[in-house]
Simulated assay, not measured.
Amino acid sequence: MSYTHDIFISYRRNPETLAWIRQHFLPLLTLRVDMELGRAPTVFIDEQVETGTSWPQSLGTALGCSRTLIALWTGNYLSSVWCSTELSHMVAREQEAQLRTAQRPHGVVIPAFIHDGNRFPAELSYMQRFEIQQCFNVRMASNSPRAEELDAVLTAQAPAIAACIEHAPAFRKSWPQAAIAKMYQKFHERAGPVQTTVPRFTAP
């Protein structure tokens, strides 16, 4: 087993957000990162609606086998058990691989604010993130000023995203195993309290 995706897009699941990702964010992200990498990035998007039907095996495998994670941050991002688990898994990977140091400055988590960045966890404030809240409009046209602004932001961010992909740590087979186990655990805990903070994630 090895990496199968360059980017895992983590977002608070709902059909409107998914439509915006598919119609606007993904095409421009792929175009601009392709120009930097010299190849089209492979991107994973979970298309399950937030109903508890997300399959732990496939979701955990995709997460564990992705080089980087782009977190589309919203004020209710952490209220999703899937989002909080995805984010915490990749934060733990950064710590395990000893990233974001003088020797290895690149991380694997790339926050992109599409709503209410003020609620982004203070403990993750060291992460460089970018703002596309003004471009998050599910009704915007592909030739609208907001779409042009989104393209401009992703053009500016593409070199940094490509660098994170290129400097991703060597794959470890424990990552998908741990992610799958955590997804199954959370799948069976859905009736529990709502998550409001970044949970700790450690491999079993």
Rank of each mutant, 00 (worst) to 15 (best):
E131C: 13
V194F: 13
N76S: 10
P121A: 08
M35I: 12
D116W: 14
A71V: 12
E131T: 06
P111Y: 03
A179C: 11
V109C: 10
L124F: 05
N137D: 14
V153P: 07
L31F: 12
T42Q: 09
L59N: 07
S54H: 04
F130Y: 00
K182E: 10
Y77E: 02
M1W: 05
V49F: 02
S10H: 03
P41L: 11
H167D: 15
V138M: 05
E86P: 09
P145R: 00
P176T: 01
P169K: 09
E86W: 01
W175T: 00
N137R: 14
L99G: 03
I110P: 01
A162Y: 06
Q103D: 14
I132V: 14
T51V: 15
T74P: 02
T196P: 09
A160L: 05
F187M: 08
Q195I: 14
T85L: 15
W55G: 07
M1R: 08
Q95E: 13
W82V: 09
L87K: 01
A71Y: 06
R200M: 13
S174T: 11
Q103N: 13
E47R: 05
D6E: 14
A156P: 02
R146W: 08
C83I: 12
M183T: 04
Q195P: 08
Q185D: 14
P169Y: 10
F25M: 10
S174V: 06
P27A: 13
A163T: 08
M183D: 04
L63Y: 08
A141H: 01
R67A: 04
S144V: 11
V153E: 08
G107H: 13
Q157D: 02
N143K: 05
A152K: 07
V108K: 10
Q57M: 10
F187L: 15
C83S: 10
S58G: 07
V91D: 15
N137T: 10
D6S: 08
R32K: 10
H115G: 02
S58L: 09
I110V: 11
T197C: 11
G60K: 03
V108H: 07
A178I: 01
F171S: 06
S79R: 15
C164N: 12
L31E: 13
I161M: 02
S10E: 05
L72M: 12
I114S: 03
I165Y: 07
A181T: 09
M183S: 13
S88I: 07
S144N: 03
L78W: 08
R172N: 10
L124E: 02
D116F: 14
Q195K: 13
C83V: 15
I161T: 02
P193V: 11
E189R: 15
D46L: 09
G117Q: 12
V198F: 01
G107E: 03
L37M: 14
L37A: 09
A160S: 10
M127Q: 11
I110Y: 00
